[in-house]
Design a protein around this nucleic acid. Structure first.
Lengths: 206, 206
DNA sequence: AAAGATAGGTAACGCTGTTAAAGGATCCAG
DNA sequence: CTGGATCCTTTAACAGCGTTACCTATCTTT
C-alpha cells in the first residue's frame, strides 16, 4: 500500500494536471480556429484559467506551443523506436522514413507549428531532434559497409531527411492537390535506390 | 516620337511608382528586422507613406507580402525559362531542380514568407506555381519515352519537387548546420538515378 | 493560532492590423 | 478662368493582441 503522498509530490501532480488541462485546451482550440487565429485570450476564455496562470506554467505563448509540439513529437520518437532495429539497414531506413512521413501527414498542424516556431526562435523541440537522429543513424552502418554510392555519409542522410520533410511540407501546404497515393513509397524507394549501392532491384517490396 | 502621355497612363505610372517605393521599403525592413517583427507601423514610419495608402495599394498586410513574394518568384520563373530547353529531358530536370534549390537558398526570407502566407490563405503566388510547372513539365517526355522506373508520372514529378523544397526548407530552417557542400547535386542525382531508367551512370556530370 | 508560501485573478500597458471620415491636389466642363 | 468631380493621401480612432505588476485566497508548517 502506497504511503500518503508527500506535499511536494501533490504539488507537482497538481502542476502536471493544470498543465495537461491547458495543453488539451490549446490543442482543441488550435484544431478549431487554426494556428493563425489562435490567441491566448481565446484560450483563457475556453480553458477556465486566466492569462497569468498560463504564463506561469509555460512562460510564453511560444513556450506553450513549444510544449505542445514537443509532446506530440515524442510520439513519433516512440514509434520510430518501436520499429525493428535489426536486419538490412536500408530496410530500416525505408521503414523509418515512411513512418516519419506518415506522422507528418497525420499531424499537419503540429508540423506547421514546429516550423513556425523554429522560424522565430533558434530552438528545436528536443523530441524532434531525436526523431531526426533516429532517421540518420542507420546511414553510419551503410557507410562502414561501403554501400553508399557517392558523396559522404552526411550528404545521403540529409538527402533522405530533406525528401521526407519535403513530402510532408508539400502535402500539408496544399492538401487539395491530388497527391499520388504511392508518392511516399515511390519517392523513398527511388532515392534509396539512387543512394545505396546494392538496393537496386531485389527488394522485398513489390 | 511618342505622344504626350494620356491621363490614365500618367495615373497608372504614378501608381506603379508608389507601389515600387512601398515594396522596396518592405523588402528593406523585412531584411532588417525579420519577418516576425515586421509591422505596417514600422513600414509607414520608414517609407514616408501612411497606412491607408498601403491598404489602398495592396488591400491587406498579406496582400503586400504576397506581392513581394510573387515579384521575387518571377525572377525564378525567368531564370528557369532561360535555361536550355532541348536535349536530354533528365538533364533539363537536373538543371532546373538545381536552379530551384539555389534560388530558395539565396532567398530564404521570401521562401519563408511564401510558406507562411500559404499557411493562412489558400492562394499561391502565380509565379511560384509557374515555376513548379516548369519543374514538372519535362517528366511528360520521360513518361512518353517510357523511361520512368515505377509508379506514374505524377509520382515522379512530385517526388523531385518534394526533394527540392525539402532541401530548401531544411537549409533555411537551421542554417547553422554544416550542410554538405554537394548535398543538392548528390541528392538530385540520386533521386533521378532511382526514378529514371537509363540515367544510371553515364551522365556527363562528374 | 500565526506565519509564510504559492496558485490563481484583476486590471492595465503598449503594440498590432485595419478602417471611417475628412483633407487636398489634379483634371475636365462650361 | 472658374466650379465641380475624381482620385490619392492623411488624421484619428477601434478592437484585439501578448504580456506583466500587483493583489487575493488557500493551504502547509511551526
Amino acid at each position: 500500500m502506497p504511503a500518503a503522498p508527500n506535499l511536494e509530490q501533490r504539488r507537482t501532480a497538481q502542476r502536471a494536471r493544470t498543465r495537461r488541462t491547458i495543453l488539451d485546451a490549446t490543442e482543441q482550440l488550435l484544431l478549431d480556429v487554426g494556428m493563425q487565429a489562435f490567441s491566448i485570450r481565446k484560450l483563457v476564455a475556453e480553458c477556465g484559467y486566466t492569462a497569468p496562470t498560463i504564463y506561469q506554467h509555460f512562460g510564453d505563448k511560444d513556450g506553450l506551443l513549444d510544449a505542445l509540439v514537443d509532446e506530440r513529437f515524442e510520439r513519433l520518437e516512440e514509434r520510430l523506436r518501436r520499429l525493428r532495429r535489426s536486419g538490412d539497414p536500408v530496410e530500416i531506413l525505408r521503414t523509418r522514413a515512411l513512418a516519419f512521413i506518415r506522422f507528418g501527414i497525420r499531424n499537419p498542424r503540429h508540423v506547421q507549428l514546429a516550423s513556425a516556431l523554429r522560424a522565430r526562435k533558434h530552438a528545436v523541440p528536443p523530441s524532434m531532434e531525436e526523431a531526426r537522429a533516429l532517421l540518420e543513424q542507420p546511414w553510419v552502418q551503410l557507410w562502414e559497409a561501403e554501400r553508399i554510392r557517392a558523396g559522404d555519409w552526411h550528404s545521403a542522410a540529409q538527402a533522405l531527411g530533406a525528401l521526407c520533410t519535403g513530402i510532408v511540407v508539400a502535402r500539408i501546404e496544399n492538401p487539395d492537390h491530388d497527391w499520388s497515393k504511392t508518392l511516399a513509397d515511390d519517392a523513398v524507394d527511388a532515392l534509396l535506390r539512387g543512394l545505396v549501392i546494392d538496393y537496386s532491384e531485389g527488394t522485398p517490396r513489390r
